[in-house]
Amino acid sequence: MQYIIVGLGGQGILFTSRVLGYIAVSRGERVMGSEVHGMAQRGGSVISHFKVGDYSSPLVLTGAADLLLSFDQNEGIRNLHFLRKAGHAILNVHAPEAMENPHLKSFLAERQIKAFCLPGYDILREKMEGRFLFMNALILGAMCGAGAGNLSIDEVSDAVEKLAPAKFRADNLKAVNLGYGHFAGK
């Protein structure tokens, strides 16, 4: 299983790969990932590679990722080429009309990519007083709700509970459930 996680510096992308890693290791699987630290984190484009299974290198080859988790619409679109045929994308989208671009739609269709778009900012604004730092938990929940990534909501909730700092634990779990509810059963 190969993940690409993208967004902007400061959105909490590293926490997401820590959650994925925690789950994989508790399943007895090997993990490997590549993170971005330093200047690249200052609000600029950030990409995290994450691989579960018997790999040697932390980097995902373009066209080989199973799942793209995107915290930012533009970063998500820029990195869709990482997805393999029939891969899945979970995208936080702030301008849904842009997703109707005919070239984009034909690329997704051609590669049989399933793109799950959610209005992350709207959800967090309405349900969590606009605290956008919970985008990572929201995306993780959405991933489970969309049935992508082969991870159960219980596993993700459990990992988030273990890894989140105590004072943000309840809020993180709430965000996981909001993300899950956005797609689950729909």
Partner: peptide, 24 residues
């Protein structure tokens, strides 16, 4: 071939560019 001409066209039309790091 980097077989993503449609994606490239979409990125161009949508003016999606990498975001450089900025002061917070």
């Amino acid at each position: 071939e980097e077989g993503v001409p449609e994606l490239k066209a979409a990125i161009e039309e949508m003016k999606v560019t990498p975001k450089p790091p900025m002061l917070c």
